[in-house]
Simulated assay, not measured.
Amino acid sequence: MDNKQNVGAPDRDRINVNEDYELQYWSEALCVSRDELRNAVKEAGTSAEKVKAYLNK
């Protein structure tokens, strides 16, 4: 489970699609649907940078 008190760099660098608030935040931040974000994380992993790179292909 995601520790909402731990909001330092490691937490911001990872995308947890199992947490609704993160799914909402990242889908809006990256201008993609929640399903597109889930698929990108499935393909690229949880690293925010890798997901961004995957979506920019």
Rank of each mutant, 00 (worst) to 15 (best):
M1K: 02
M1F: 05
D2S: 06
K4A: 10
N6H: 11
N6A: 14
N6L: 14
N6K: 13
A9Q: 09
P10Q: 03
R12T: 02
R12C: 02
D13Q: 15
R14K: 12
R14Q: 10
I15Q: 13
I15W: 13
I15N: 09
I15H: 11
N16R: 12
N18G: 13
E19R: 12
E19W: 05
E19P: 00
D20K: 10
Y21Q: 08
Y21E: 11
E22C: 00
L23N: 02
L23I: 03
L23R: 12
L23P: 03
Y25A: 09
Y25V: 04
Y25P: 11
W26D: 13
W26S: 10
E28C: 09
E28I: 01
E28V: 07
A29F: 14
A29R: 15
C31F: 11
C31I: 07
V32P: 07
S33M: 14
R34H: 15
L37Q: 07
R38S: 03
A40G: 08
A40Y: 07
A44F: 10
G45S: 11
G45Q: 09
T46K: 14
T46D: 14
T46Q: 14
S47K: 11
S47Q: 14
S47N: 15
A48P: 00
A48R: 15
E49P: 00
K50F: 05
V51M: 05
V51K: 09
A53L: 02
A53V: 00
A53R: 04
K57V: 00
